[in-house]
Amino acid sequence: MQGVVKVNSALNMRSGPGSNYGVIGTLRNNDKVEIIKEVDGWYEIRFNGKVGYASKSYITIVN
């Protein structure tokens, strides 16, 4: 499943599904990501070869 990031500035990509996990990357508005699965309001995603987590509130699913 594919998604597009929708933010005003930047979205942190984290090592786990929560804001208490470390930041491993930064996503920008309109970045395209691969959604692997949903975990407690977060998406596990793949972006630029990295796998991490981002809040699903800021990612819109596209077909």
Score class of each variant (00 low, 15 high):
T60V: 12
V51M: 11
N63I: 11
Q2Y: 12
E44G: 06
G52A: 09
V62L: 13
W42T: 02
M1W: 11
E38H: 05
R28K: 15
K32W: 13
N12L: 12
N20G: 11
I24D: 02
G25R: 06
A10R: 11
R46K: 14
E38S: 07
E44L: 08
V62G: 09
D40M: 09
Q2G: 09
T26N: 08
I35K: 01
G49Q: 13
G41T: 09
I35N: 00
N48Q: 14
E38M: 06
A54Q: 03
M13E: 00
N30P: 03
V62M: 11
W42V: 01
N30S: 10
S57H: 11
G41F: 07
M13I: 10
M13F: 12
V7T: 12
T26W: 09
L27F: 03
D31G: 03
I45P: 00
E34D: 11
G41Q: 10
M1P: 08
A54N: 00
I59Q: 00
T26G: 04
S57D: 15
I61D: 05
I61F: 07
G3S: 03
P17Q: 01
G49V: 06
L27Q: 01
G52D: 00
G25D: 14
K50W: 09
S55R: 13
I24N: 06
S15Q: 09
K56M: 11
M1C: 05
G16M: 02
N8D: 15
N29S: 15
N48G: 09
V5E: 01
T26A: 07
S55H: 13
S55D: 15
I36N: 07
N48R: 09
A10V: 13
T60K: 08
E34P: 03
V62W: 08
Y21W: 12
A10L: 11
G3P: 02
V5K: 01
V39N: 07
K56Q: 10
K56E: 05
I35T: 02
Y58E: 14
T26P: 06
I36M: 09
G25P: 00
E38A: 07
G52H: 02
S55E: 15
E38I: 08
Y58W: 10
V62Q: 11
I36W: 05
V4R: 10
E38L: 07
E38R: 04
T60D: 14
E44T: 04
I36F: 11
A54C: 05
P17L: 02
G22M: 11
R28L: 15
R14I: 05
M1T: 15
S55Y: 10
S9R: 09
E44K: 08
G22K: 11
D40L: 08
I36Q: 09
M13Q: 03
G22R: 08
N8M: 11
V4S: 07
Y43I: 04
I45T: 03
S15N: 12
W42C: 02
A54M: 07
Y43T: 02
F47S: 08
S55V: 13
D40H: 12
K6M: 07
